[in-house]
Every structure is written in structure tokens, then in C-alpha cells.
């Protein structure tokens, strides 16, 4: 099916609202992700970034607002359905299978993507082996592909998450702190790879990242969140110049009082 507006962004989030008991974890956030573009969400801990990701990918259905993929609503759909629509994701706390090898972790995602899960007679070890190896080569883990996932270093797990997220040839990639726990050199390498993939394959990427240098050097647009709310959106240059952003990022230690006054 062709989208209604060929120029419409790949992902549109409108007035997203997620409630945990009494607290509003995400309160009226709107953002767009275009194909081939990298969009970063930044903000202090507890700003609601991970909740945003979970609401988009279906892990935590939003209480209000809308999530549109190619102009069609996907809010409230199950994560497995959203996956089948071409959305891949990585987790802030890695979610891999410790009792499988690195390659098997990718294979099982490929099996699911190709809808071969309910085939009790097919040997999983032989399925999509080459494809999995190609993905592992892409992220530079060929040497570790036969190791048990449970014994990997944390940085390697993070890279593996990317390979798994790429298994369904996603159009949209959601990456929740993809480089946390990695050495600086590794970080740059991984994110450069992500940027290259986005450009080559036209993948829209929404990511969060603590390393401000990476964010400002790679993101096409930056979304700033604080206390569940959208603070600012714009190109790196615009955001860099935004005084409110400077306040929460640079001046929050000195001006906690003024930060309190943010509209809520």
C-alpha cells in the first residue's frame, strides 16, 4: 500500500502520554522520524526517554496520544505486531538470550522475521546461518559468533543487540542507549555504523545517548525531554543555542530552583 502522503515522515508521534500510577512518565510528547535520518532524544535521567521508546515499540501501550508509522496508527499494538511492521529495537538493559550463542541470538530473530517459528521439524541451527553471519560481520563480531551470549562483555552485548534489531530489515530502528557501557572508541565506531546504515538503507533511527558529542555530531535533529515533557526540538545547532537546554544540561546544579519552574 502506498502511504497517503508520500512525503510524510516515517514515524509520527503525536501528544504521547504514558502514566505510571499517579506519575506522568511521558506527557504530551510529539516528534517525527524521517527515513534515512537519525533523531536523538536527550534529557536527564528520568526524563521519560525509555518510556517513550517502550510506548512506540508496544512494550508499554500509551495511555493517550498517537503513534503513526507511514501514516497508520500503531499505538496500542502488541510489540510482536509492531516488529512485523518493520520496527527493530535495542534495549537500555540488554535483552539477549544468555543460553544461546551469539549467532543463534541473531538466527532466532531472523527465524521469527521469516515466519518460521512454528516449524518444529526444521533445525534452527541451519536456518539463516549465512544471513546471521553477515549481520555479525557488519557489527564486527564474527570472531565471537560461537560463544555463549551469557559470557560476553557488556559492550559486545550492546553490539549484538544492534545485529538482532537489524534482523527484520527494519525501516525504523529504536535504540535505547545503544552505547552505554562501551569504551569511547567503540562508541564512535558503532554509531558511525548506525549512521552509515541509516543513510545506505534509508532506515529512520530514533536513539537516546548520553555522549553529547556523539549526539551533536551525528543526529540530524535532537529532541530534548525533561520530566516527561518535550522541551525543545531542532537541529544540533538550534539546540546547542537553546538557553533552556543549557540550563538543564549545564546549569541544573546551580539553578535547581529555576528548573523546578518548568511548566508541568
Amino acid at each position: 500500500m502506498t502511504p497517503q502522503h508520500p512525503t510524510a515522515p516515517l514515524l509520527q508521534v503525536r501528544d504521547l502520554l504514558v502514566r505510571y500510577g499517579e506519575t506522568l512518565a511521558v506527557n504530551g510528547v510529539s516528534l517525527d522520524v524521517e527515513a534515512g535520518k537519525l533523531i536523538a532524544i536527550i534529557g536527564p535521567n528520568g526524563a521519560g526517554k525509555s518510556t517513550c521508546f517502550n510506548a512506540i515499540s508496544g512494550q508499554r501501550p500509551p495511555n493517550a496520544g498517537e503513534v503513526l508509522l507511514d501514516g497508520k496508527s500503531i499505538s496500542g499494538l502488541l510489540p510482536e505486531t509492531i516488529f512485523s511492521l518493520g520496527v527493530g529495537r535495542t534495549f537500555q538493559v540488554t535483552a539477549t538470550v544468555p543460553t544461546m550463542t551469539v549467532r543463534e541470538n541473531v538466527q532466532v530473530a531472523l527465524i521469527s522475521y521469516h515466519r518460521r517459528t512454528f516449524s518444529p521439524w526444521v533445525s534452527a541451527r541451519r536456518l539463516y546461518r549465512e544471513e546471521a553471519d553477515r549481520l555479525l560481520e557488519l557489527i564486527g563480531m564474527t570472531g565471537q559468533r560461537d560463544r555463549a551470549c551469557g559470557v560476553l562483555a557488556y559492550g559486545d552485548l550492546k553490539r549484538l543487540e544492534l545485529a538482532i534489531a537489524l534482523a527484520n530489515a527494519p525501516r525504523l530502528l529504536l535504540m535505547d542507549e545503544p552505547t552505554a557501557g562501551m569504551a569511547p572508541a567503540e562508541r564512535n565506531e558503532l554509531m558511525a555504523l548506525v549512521a552509515r546504515l541509516a543513510a545506505d538503507r534509508g532506515i529512520g533511527v530514533l536513539f537516546t545517548e548520553h555522549d553529547i558529542d556523539i549526539v551533536f555530531s551525528l543526529a540530524h535533529r535532537i529532541v530534548v525531554m525533561n520530566r516527561g515533557q518535550l522541551l525543545a526540538t531542532g537541529t544540533p545547532d538550534v539546540i546547542r543555542a537553546d538557553p533552556r537546554v543549557q540550563e538543564i544540561y549545564l546549569g541544573r546544579d546551580d539553578h535547581t530552583g529555576s528548573a523546578e519552574k518548568q511548566p508541568s
Partner: peptide, 17 residues
């Protein structure tokens, strides 16, 4: 394999469909 993913990492299982 899918069964073991649901056992060891239900969140991942859902995320890979």
C-alpha cells in the same frame, strides 16, 4: 529456539516478533 527466548528473555521475544 523461540521457546527458549520466551523463557530467558520475554521482552526480547516480543521485540523480535
Amino acid at each position: 529456539y523461540a521457546l527458549r527466548v520466551t523463557r530467558d528473555s520475554p521482552a526480547r521475544a516480543a521485540a523480535i516478533g
